[in-house]
Every structure is written in structure tokens, then in C-alpha cells.
């Protein structure tokens, strides 16, 4: 396979896409939101357990492409045990990484946050049409944090 495909589909991504972590609907969760990408029809639901402003558990269910599944899987790992504010900065940092934006988001993002494993998504910015696949779970996550009831879409 050509070099640059491996840049997009890094081993970690393929691994998480094939065997998503935290897949399911934890009965104890107290926030949830659905995400929908109208371009491809992918849908997923993010379930959070928030205790005293800390994400103590995160999980998801749904079906989608390798990028969106791996993104959801890694996201649920990364946001666990973060405060809501920390998790939100992580989203901003992640968004700046995959959308390649240099502006406000990138500068303000990530106070105290560190991309960690999420850095494997750096190849996504070369594929503009796939950026939404990577951010879909995060949009749903942000909506769940806000306690939003309506489905969110990547078009917002």
C-alpha cells in the first residue's frame, strides 16, 4: 500500500476501527447525544457519565467508516477522567489538528490538554472530505456535555 494511505489509516486507527473500545450503552450514563453525518448517513450515539464535572465514563454505539469509528473509540478513551473543561479543550485541539486550522481555535485550544494518542489523526487534514468523519463523534460528545437533546449533525 502506498505510503500516504498509511498516513491516513495509521495502525492505531485500523486497530480501533476493527475493535472499537468502549462500544455499548452503559446503563449508568447520565448524558447522551446522537451525531449524524448527512453526507454519508453515518450515525452514532455518545454516552457519558458525568460526576462532579468530571467525565467518569464514556462510550458509544453506531456504525460508520474506519475514521469515524476509530475517532469515537479513541475519544472515549481520551476523555475519561477529564473535567468537562479539559475534555472540551481536547476537542478544540483535535479539531485544529484534523481541520488544519491555524486560527483562533488552534491558539486558544488545549489549555493544559495534550493530544496524546489522538495525534494519529494528523493525516486526516489531507483529506478534506474525511474531516467530518473524524469530528462527528466529537460533535456528539460536545452536544452530550451540553445536555443537548436534539441530534447534532456535522453540518452545524
Amino acid at each position: 500500500m502506498t505510503f500516504d494511505l498509511r498516513e491516513l489509516y495509521q495502525e492505531v486507527i485500523l486497530d480501533h476501527a476493527k475493535q472499537p473500545r468502549n462500544f455499548g450503552h452503559p446503563p449508568a450514563c447520565n448524558r447522551q447525544a446522537k451525531g449524524h453525518n448527512p453526507l454519508c448517513g453515518d450515525r452514532l450515539t455518545v454516552y457519558l457519565t458525568i460526576e462532579d464535572g468530571v467525565v467518569t465514563d464514556a462510550a458509544f454505539e453506531g456504525a460508520g467508516c474506519a475514521i469515524s469509528m476509530a475517532s469515537a473509540s479513541l475519544m472515549t478513551e481520551m476523555v475519561k477522567n477529564k473535567t468537562e473543561a479539559e475534555a472540551h479543550s481536547l476537542f478544540e485541539l483535535f479539531h485544529a489538528l484534523v481541520a488544519g486550522d491555524q486560527g483562533e481555535n488552534a491558539e486558544n485550544a488545549g489549555d493544559g490538554a495534550d493530544l496524546g494518542k489522538l495525534a494519529v489523526f494528523s493525516g486526516v487534514r489531507e483529506y478534506p472530505v474525511r474531516v467530518k468523519c473524524a469530528t462527528l463523534p466529537w460533535h456528539a460528545f460536545a452536544a452530550a456535555l451540553k445536555g443537548k437533546q436534539d441530534d447534532v449533525t456535522t453540518e452545524e
Binding site: T2, D4, L5, L8, Y9, K18, C40, D42, G64, C65, A66, I67, Y127, R130, C133
Partner: peptide
Amino acid sequence: EGVHPHDIGTILDH
């Protein structure tokens, strides 16, 4: 089975 259409599209685009 096991390969999402979007991923097929990206591989083919390459």
C-alpha cells in the same frame, strides 16, 4: 463486509 463505502472510496481515489 467490514469495509465502509467511504473507506473504499478513499482507497480507490488513491
